[in-house]
Amino acid sequence: MFLGMVGPWQIMLILGLGLGIILPIIALVDIVRHEFKGNNKIIWVLIVIFFNIFGSILYFAMGRQQRIDTV
């Protein structure tokens, strides 16, 4: 293997780490910027922190409908 060549395993690792870091940050910023009913905001923050990628996907699939629209 030549130095500087990136193989499929390196690309998968980079994408996996990127999703593991970027997706929870985007979810946490979205949660903090919006209002929720009751304690839902705290619950979603804890879900995203403890279950990084899975919690973020769960928030984007289910949690965004629980936001209070202030438009």
Score class of each variant (00 low, 15 high):
F2N: 13
L3M: 02
L3S: 12
L3Y: 11
L3R: 10
G4C: 05
G4V: 01
G4Y: 03
G4W: 07
G4I: 00
M5S: 08
M5V: 14
M5I: 06
M5D: 14
V6G: 04
G7D: 14
G7M: 12
G7C: 05
G7L: 06
G7E: 11
P8V: 15
W9I: 08
W9A: 10
Q10F: 07
L13A: 14
I14Y: 01
I14P: 02
G16K: 07
G16I: 07
L17R: 08
G18L: 14
G18V: 08
L19I: 08
I21Q: 02
I21L: 12
I22P: 01
I22C: 06
L23T: 02
L23P: 00
L23V: 04
P24L: 00
P24A: 04
P24S: 00
I26L: 09
L28T: 01
L28F: 03
L28G: 06
L28R: 01
V29S: 07
V29H: 12
V29P: 10
V29W: 02
D30A: 01
I31V: 07
V32R: 12
V32N: 15
V32I: 15
R33M: 05
R33I: 00
R33T: 09
H34R: 03
H34Y: 02
H34W: 04
E35Q: 15
F36H: 14
F36Y: 15
K37S: 15
K37Q: 10
G38S: 06
G38C: 02
G38E: 03
N39Y: 13
N40W: 01
N40E: 13
K41Y: 10
K41G: 01
I42Y: 08
V45F: 04
V45G: 02
V45K: 03
L46I: 08
L46S: 10
L46A: 13
L46N: 05
V48F: 04
V48K: 06
I49R: 09
I49H: 02
I49A: 12
F50N: 07
F50Y: 11
F51H: 09
F51S: 03
I53W: 01
F54N: 03
S56C: 05
I57P: 06
L58P: 12
L58K: 15
L58W: 08
L58F: 11
Y59N: 01
Y59Q: 03
Y59C: 07
F60E: 03
M62V: 12
G63W: 03
G63A: 03
G63S: 04
R64V: 05
R64K: 14
Q65Y: 11
Q65N: 08
Q65P: 05
Q65M: 00
Q66C: 09
Q66A: 12
R67Q: 14
I68C: 04
I68T: 05
I68E: 10
D69C: 10
D69P: 10
D69H: 15
D69S: 13
T70R: 07
T70F: 04
T70P: 10
V71F: 13
V71R: 12
V71S: 15
V71M: 15
